[in-house]
Design a protein around this nucleic acid. Structure first.
Length: 858
RNA sequence: GCCCGGGUGGUGGAAUCGGUAGACACGGGGGCCUCAAAAGCCCUUGCUCUUACGGGCGUGCGGGUUCGACUCCCGCCCCGGGCACCA
């Protein structure tokens, strides 16, 4: 037992010190920041959480990384904006309301309280004055104002569209909320198609900028790739084909391979294509209609399940189109593999160069004409690679790329086609038939049509006296008082829109509101946004790689264009970090799976600092974490390490070999004066008296190496190896402390450990710093400057040189760092081990990477 | 099917520019301290041959480049993620 631990107040008691410092931070508003702060601004943001009650380990992980960044950047001298809020609209609260009969607001506020408490107990530092909640009437107000501005700008519109309808949730789902197997992401029900009048945001207007804007973002490459794929830009041609015997009709098709037009052997329309009924001949009608029936009313799951029975997937219309390239008629089919929502909803089919067309052609006995010579020995069916054109009239002999260009020019020259860019990205469907969301501020009047709710009547807030029936329908739709309203224009009875907005709308601009949550005249002042935006470091889960991050990017561009945001902002998140997920037995941790591990039990046993340290140490932040039966051991180990830091730090005060506090204070003051002269050394970088022994020199170098390594590791998100480095320094410090090193080196090492650790485990470091230095409240460890390594101390005078013979490690020799090649060669040729291996032969070659390595080739 | 990641001891992981593979931990084994325990400290811990000294093998598999490969190239296998009729 250490000297200090004999006194009860000197044992490491995380619960006591964590509560103490958390209340200090809260009472002092340590991490509050003003918009007129003079320091260089730095905006750190973690994705605001859906309030699900007590935090889960995914939150803990996220907010630990965020808090580390906040504290680290603050120590580097930035004025850091660190806000937090709650994504408090959404389905779970509504479902809970249906079950319990309680109002979702009550339920949500309670959950926010619980989540807030777990975040406070984590010791995360925020400017709580800036808290934003989606369900706050104030936020709803601005959400609705922005919606109206979008409407004015033509960015919000209403359209009757086939939508994904979940019979379980009784609501429309965005494409993104429908899983690949055609089921609802939330309820698992089979999603069906329905035609409904819905609100959309015109995100496709920004398709090109959403794509090109990715270039300059410091985002993980895989997130950018996912977004690029989602946008799905493709270049090609759109051209018209005449219909045999029908001079009144023309068929327009889109293709990315105009060069393959000579290989067109049929055309396909989507079953929903408007020309289908006109093109269908009497004898084909029943066949065509039965296919339309099957495709139209079915769910995607039915549509997909037809895979394999390909002959049920298409029907011949009885009509023929004329291929403009060779004037040949080709039969027109309808088939479910062509989608109405993409391109023109009609394609020219080239089975030789497209596998889907090939499969269809084979099933329907349609011909295959190759237009690109496949490589010799080609065994596949359709060949979509490059090569020389054949069977292609004026394109023969060209390479695919040239032929594409020629075909395009030919189409343009003839005036039958144009170059065309298509996107996979669709407009954002924002209507939700739910209660617990931001109401869409629109009134429908029989006389005046669609009328936006006047600003002075905003916000439109969902009523309190609602009845939650287990029908799945939104209570708004049967709440007469809410629904009935006087038309703002003619005052006659009118109906309110009862749909609410997708909750992704709320999360698309909350980070701007954080800049200026007090703003009353506008959603945020341009000045504040100009100062803080874009977010310097955004941190969140990879699961938001596409939706949230795409929508938020769209929103910022739109807000710039309608004049609410500074025009040149364009992008919200300059740097993005996506953390890995917590897994349990291989599956994603989530409440629905009942596999959450609440932080409370760790707060009570080992404390928040140990839990934070575990999340930093367990592996690379971007990797998934497997929560196993070993995990508690690792957390325990983190606690043991912190106990060691505690003990060794306090022992240093007690140890007669180190300075008294008074002496240290004097020394620090002196060093600060000295620091100003060389302008470089801050914090613990005191050089000492110059009387240090060899042992002291080693510890001093070790401290500087740790500063260097940890700083570089924090910049490259290698928190696990940063922690390892601090552990290593702590082990050395402990050793030197026992061996009685001098005070300069011990104090340096101890302070270095505490400073480097302070953004990671803030409570214990603040407490120890206070016990050592007795600092006042505005001079805690978190007010210290991040240490800088002295480059001169990073290199040693001697190095361990690896001696290799034929590339294999054979020996190690300590050499001076400046050793020359000749000297090194002579030295190693004399080594007994090398001599034995040479066996009298002379070396053929010597490769030297001095002073670290030398390799003799025999 | 296409596009991304990844595969290193019993476990989590490290090796940042092609130069000591396994840092730092967890777990295991042994010891010290103790009446005893907890805590702490010390030693040990990739596999394998050897009493030892010392050797051999080793980063999913098979090749290649190089004085030298976890790292680069080619071809496979396995795991995870994203997209999936987007013409």
């Amino acid at each position: 037992m250490s000297v200090y631990e004999k006194e009860p107040e000197n044992t490491y008691n995380p619960q006591v010190i964590e509560a103490k410092w958390q209340s200090i931070w809260r009472d002092q508003g340590t991490y509050n920041i003003e918009n007129n702060d003079k320091r260089e601004p730095y905006y750190v943001l973690c994705m605001y959480p859906y309030p699900s009650g007590q935090a889960h380990q995914g939150h803990i992980r996220n907010y630990t990384f965020g808090d580390l960044t906040v504290r680290y950047r603050t120590m580097q001298g930035y004025g850091v904006l660190s806000p937090i809020g709650f994504d408090s609209f959404g389905l779970p609260a509504e479902n809970a309301a249906i079950k319990s009969g309680r109002h979702p607001r009550e339920f949500t506020d309670e959950r926010i309280g619980e989540l807030k408490e777990s975040l406070m107990k984590l010791g995360a530092s925020y400017d709580w004055r800036r808290e934003v909640k989606s369900h706050d009437p104030n936020y709803i107000y601005w959400n609705q104002i922005i919606f109206k501005k979008f409407l004015d700008a033509g960015l919000a519109y209403r359209s009757n569209a086939p939508v994904n309808w979940c019979p379980g949730c009784k609501t429309v789902l965005a494409n993104e909320q429908v899983l690949a197997d055609g089921t609802c992401e939330r309820s698992g029900d089979v999603v069906v198609k329905r035609d409904l009048e819905q609100w959309f945001f015109a995100i496709t207007k920004y398709a090109d900028e959403l794509l090109s804007g990715l270039e300059d973002l410091e985002w993980p490459e895989r997130v950018k790739i996912m977004q690029r794929n989602w946008i799905g830009r493709s270049e090609g041609a759109e051209f018209s084909m005449s219909i045999e015997g029908r001079d009144d009709l023309a068929l327009r098709v889109f293709t990315t391979r105009p060069d393959t037009s000579f290989g067109m052997t049929y055309c396909v329309l989507a079953p929903e294509h408007p020309l289908v009924s006109q093109l269908t001949t009497a004898e084909q009608r029943s066949e065509v209609e039965s296919l339309i029936e099957r495709v139209g009313s079915s769910s995607d799951i039915d549509r997909l399940s037809t895979e394999g029975e390909i002959t049920k997937r298409g029907a011949f219309t009885g009509s023929y189109a004329i291929n403009p390239f060779n004037e040949q008629p080709v039969p027109i089919y309808i088939a479910d593999y062509v989608l109405m929502g993409y391109g023109t909803g009609a394609i020219m089919a080239v089975p030789a160069e497209d596998q889907r067309d090939f499969d269809f052609a084979k099933a329907y006995g349609l011909p295959v004409i190759r237009t690109v010579e496949p490589p010799s020995g080609w065994e596949g069916e359709a060949y979509s690679g490059s090569g020389r054109k054949i069977n292609s009239g004026f394109l023969n002999g060209l390479e695919v790329d040239q032929a594409k260009e020629q075909a395009l020019s030919w189409l343009e020259g003839k005036g039958i086609g144009v170059r065309k860019v298509n996107y996979r990205l669709r407009d954002w469907l924002v209507s939700r038939q739910r209660f617990w969301g931001c109401p869409i501020p629109i009134i429908y009047c029989d006389a005046c049509g669609m009328v936006p709710v006047p600003d002075e009547d905003l916000p439109v807030v969902a009523p309190d006296d609602v009845e939650f029936r287990p029908t799945g329908e939104s209570p708004l739709s049967y709440h007469e008082e809410f629904k009935s309203v006087a038309c703002p224009i003619c005052a006659k009875p009118a109906r309110r829109e009862t749909d609410t907005m997708d909750t992704f709308v709320d999360s698309s601009w909350y980070f701007m509101r954080f800049c200026d949550p007090w703003s009353t005249g506008e959603p945020f002042s341009k000045q504040a946004v100009e100062k803080w935006m874009p977010v310097d470091q955004y941190i969140g889960g990879i699961e938001h790689a596409i939706l949230h991050l795409m929508y938020a990017r769209f929103y910022v561009k739109a807000l710039c264009d309608i004049g609410l945001a500074p025009p040149d902002l364009r992008e919200p998140f300059k740097r993005l970090f996506t953390q890995g997920m917590i897994r349990m037995e291989g599956s994603k941790m989530s409440k629905s799976k009942g596999n959450l591990v609440a932080p409370a039990k760790y707060y009570e046993s080992v404390g928040a600092d140990a839990l934070r340290l575990f999340h930093l140490f367990v592996g690379p932040p971007s990797d998934d974490v497997d929560w196993t039966n070993q995990t508690d051991n690792l957390i325990e180990g983190c606690h043991r390490f912190l106990s060691k830091v505690w003990r060794l730090s306090l022992d240093s005060i007690a140890s007669p070999s180190t300075d008294t506090i008074d002496n240290l204070e004097a020394k620090r003051a002196g060093d600060e004066a000295a620091d100003q002269t060389d302008g470089q050394n801050l914090g613990p970088n005191r050089r000492g008296s110059g009387e240090n022994t060899q042992v002291d020199q080693e510890l001093i170098r070790a401290s500087h190496r740790a500063i260097d390594k940890v700083t570089r590791d924090l910049e490259r998100w290698a928190y696990n190896s940063a922690v390892a480095q601090i552990m290593d320094l702590t082990n050395q410090y402990g050793k030197y402390l026992r061996e009685g090193a001098g005070p300069d080196s011990l104090v340096l090492a101890r302070d270095t450990i505490l400073l480097l650790l302070s953004p990671m485990t803030p409570h214990i470091c603040a407490e120890l710093w206070e016990r050592i230095y007795g600092v006042s409240q505005d001079n805690t460890i978190h007010h210290q400057t991040w240490p800088g390594a002295d480059p001169n101390l990073l290199v040693s005078e001697s190095a361990m040189m690896i001696v290799q013979v034929n590339g294999k490690l054979r020996d190690k020799v300590e050499v001076p760092v400046g050793i020359g090649e000749e000297e090194a060669t002579n030295l190693i040729l004399d080594l007994p081990k090398v001599r034995a291996l040479l066996d009298g032969k002379s070396p053929r070659k010597v490769i030297a990477r001095l002073p670290n390595l030398i390799n003799v080739v025999v």
